[in-house]
Write a protein that binds this DNA or RNA. Structure first.
Lengths: 239, 239
DNA sequence: CCATCCTGAGAGCGCCGCTCTTGTTTCCTA
DNA sequence: TAGGAAACAAGAGCGGCGCTCTCAGGATGG
């Protein structure tokens, strides 16, 4: 019968979820490299070999946590964006950037797992790329909406010709209706935002920046200007 | 006698250096988290406990490698900058950025150790902050020289007031004569460059950007424009 | 009701970081 | 120059790790 078969599969799914929950908690405490499959098993009252019935290796458990992390930060950014008026482009951009940073500060170890150096020899499997694009999708939608509203200045040098196919591909998914130059600068800004958060989280801004909340907002808006989003009529002065 | 005392200390220094050399080689092969003090000792024909005479813990060995990494990337960037004409600000900026990226691509594991997620529970000791500033010093000198030559546009929103003391402190070291707004945008660009390299190295640009050499150059010049470095008379078009 | 599969438990392998003890060599000094 | 202190390499060992294999018992499904 299908129901009985589902019965076993249900308890299996539940146990799988419980393992990832415990692992995520321990990840938040000790960090990814110190995450121990044995410790997870211990906390669950299992023997370590039993866990291997659910995750064939420690890396597979980490993969599950990475997917969770991408989804979590994706949800955070989506909610931050959704709380803004649709036509408030700078507000949406700032909210999304703050969403990334806020989630990162709240879950530093998960952030490091997702956006930090990949675990040794670990290669991101196929399943991670779809949740990984959630954040990019939100940022892309903001830029796309801004372009549609005519609120983007396409300034700056043109991207290299070799970027054309990449831009075309991105236009089909996350950045519809966005010209090549803005696509290139959006990718740059995206990497920049993550770079800023990483710098802050990994200690590069120690003894450099005091009020990091305010600085991040300023930097995020600067990067909005880099893309060409019309954020404020900036006074232009030559020194 | 001093010479004889130096004799022992010399062999000690030499052995210490040899350990870090072997460790750096193994780091390049297996990555930081898999770096094993025992394996280093094995390759040197020592027993593992002997290595502890030279490095009190595995973390201390990693610290030495981190310092080496900061110095190595610092040297790379310094040389890249030195090869340019002093008054070619955009050329120097691009060369320095390429220097970072080139070193990172050549030594991915060292880069990950230096700019990636910090090792679990590891806290950067005092000795790392001075070599860590070498790269920033080069980028800062380029911006400073550009400011002195009047080749910087101080455009964009003003940084928050709380950033004033930070900017003043940076003006005393790496960014003399640079106004607050340019200081803030320089920091942003610095983090952005590292973010771009990290994205590329850690796989976020997989299946997104094809010609990464060309894209990076374009992004680096975009970020030069963000700072205000006069890189090219960009045509301005509204879409 | 019985054969099949799934499951958890246990033992065990080889690795790890790190500590402690034991002889031995080197160095400084009285 | 002789003796004590310091540095040294080596070995054994502790607990923990990822992972494998075997085995007994219970749920599943014909």
């Amino acid at each position: 019968m299908n129901a009985s078969r589902t019965a076993r599969e249900r308890v299996r799914a539940e146990l799988t979820r419980e393992i990832t929950d415990v692992a995520r908690r321990q990840l938040g405490e000790v960090g990814a490299p110190a995450l121990s499959l044995r410790a997870v098993a211990r906390e669950m009252g299992m023997v370590s070999s039993a866990v291997y019935r659910y995750f064939p290796s420690r890396d597979d458990l980490l993969t599950a946590l990475i997917i969770d992390g991408y989804n979590a930060v994706g949800v955070a950014v989506e909610q931050a964006d959704a709380a803004c008026a649709r036509d408030d482009v700078p507000g949406r951009w700032l909210a999304a950037c703050r969403g990334i940073r806020g989630w990162a500060l709240a879950h530093p170890h998960e952030y490091a797992l997702v956006y930090g150096s990949p675990v040794p020899g670990y290669r991101a499997p196929e399943q991670t790329i779809e949740p990984a694009s959630r954040v990019a999708a939100v940022l892309g939608a903001i830029v796309s909406d801004a372009c549609a509203a005519g609120a983007v200045d396409d300034v700056g040098a043109s991207p290299p010709a070799s970027f054309g196919p990449d831009a075309a591909r991105l236009r089909e998914t996350v950045l519809p209706g966005v010209p090549d130059g803005v696509v290139a600068r959006s990718l740059t800004a995206w990497a920049s935002i993550v770079g800023l958060v990483s710098f802050e989280l990994f200690g590069q801004f120690e003894n450099v920046i005091t009020d990091r909340d305010a600085f991040f907002d300023h930097a995020a808006l600067s990067l909005a200007g880099l893309i060409g989003l019309q954020v404020d009529p900036a006074p232009r002065a030559r020194i």
